[in-house]
Amino acid sequence: MPYDLKEVAAISGMPGLYRLVKPTRAGVIVEALDEKGTRSVASARNKVSLLHEISIYTQEYDTTVPLAEVFDRIYQKHGAELALTHKSDDRDLTAFMGEILPDYDRNRVYMSDIKKLVQWYHVVSRRLPYQEAAPATTESATAAGDSAPTPEATPEAAESSATPAASEGKAKAPRKKAAKSDDEPAADEALSTAGIIPAATEDTAEGSPEAAVAKPAKKTTRKKTE
């Protein structure tokens, strides 16, 4: 997606948005997405909502639209400078939401969600670069060029080299599809907490009590009796 939201999160009890820096034993080090960029530690008890795991409800009950895609739609229509703010009139905000996502669920997406969406977009568009999506035709041409046999290869060699590549491509396709489905957010994650960053995910054995090496037992010696 044009806006990379994988490391951006909203944290309960902490206003604004934050970039995840590094996990610690106490929680995770975060950097505020504002002018100061202050770093602090979010406790493991805080709920961390990763923006790339958040989506918007649509009128189809089991269908949601990822927040990154919604941000892209806003950029295509309004650019990085959005005139609306979270303090705008409710009627203007409702009309804006209907323009960006005409089929959004009016019963499950509240006005507070729309205001949060607008507020987050202002932060993201000011602090993160907009990346143009790479053309799909270029990737297809590159993939086709990589799989084509060289002119010097004999027909037998070309056939033998193409067969494993084709079978390998067929074997990998289901795995890619499964990974994509795992990344898709569930419907109950729309504009809500998406998960909690576990504490001490990158601690070393030296600093982690659970990973400490057990000390060998002391040897006991017996006195010889005369």
Rank of each mutant, 00 (worst) to 15 (best):
A148F: 06
A153Y: 03
E159P: 00
T142D: 01
G169R: 05
P149L: 03
A133T: 11
S147L: 09
A136C: 03
P135S: 08
T154V: 06
A141G: 00
T138C: 01
K170P: 05
E156R: 14
A153D: 15
Y130F: 15
D146C: 04
E159G: 08
K172W: 07
T154N: 02
A134G: 05
S160F: 12
T138L: 13
E132N: 11
E139Q: 05
P151K: 04
D146R: 08
L128Y: 06
R127V: 07
T142C: 04
Y130P: 01
T138N: 04
G145I: 06
P149E: 08
S160A: 15
A148C: 02
P135K: 11
S125V: 08
E156I: 12
T138E: 10
T137G: 06
T163I: 03
A157T: 08
P149V: 02
S161V: 13
T142Q: 01
S161Q: 08
T137S: 15
A134P: 00
A162K: 07
A148M: 08
A166N: 09
L128E: 12
Q131I: 07
E168V: 07
A136L: 13
P155N: 02
P135M: 08
A144H: 00
S167D: 13
T163R: 14
T142L: 09
E132S: 12
V123T: 15
A136H: 09
G145S: 11
L128R: 12
S161T: 14
P155D: 10
A171M: 09
A166K: 09
P129T: 12
A148G: 00
G169D: 00
R126D: 15
P129Y: 06
R127T: 10
S161I: 07
P149S: 04
A166Q: 07
P149N: 00
V123F: 09
A153Q: 11
E152K: 11
E139Y: 03
K170F: 08
E139G: 01
S167N: 11
T142S: 02
T142E: 03
S160L: 15
A162Y: 04
T163F: 06
A165H: 04
P155R: 09
A157W: 00
S125E: 09
A143R: 02
E152A: 14
P151I: 14
E156W: 01
E139D: 13
D146V: 09
R126C: 05
R127K: 14
A165F: 02
L128G: 13
E139L: 04
K170L: 04
L128S: 05
A133W: 08
K172H: 05
E156K: 11
A153W: 10
S161E: 11
P151Y: 07
K172C: 03
A162M: 13
T150G: 06
P135G: 06
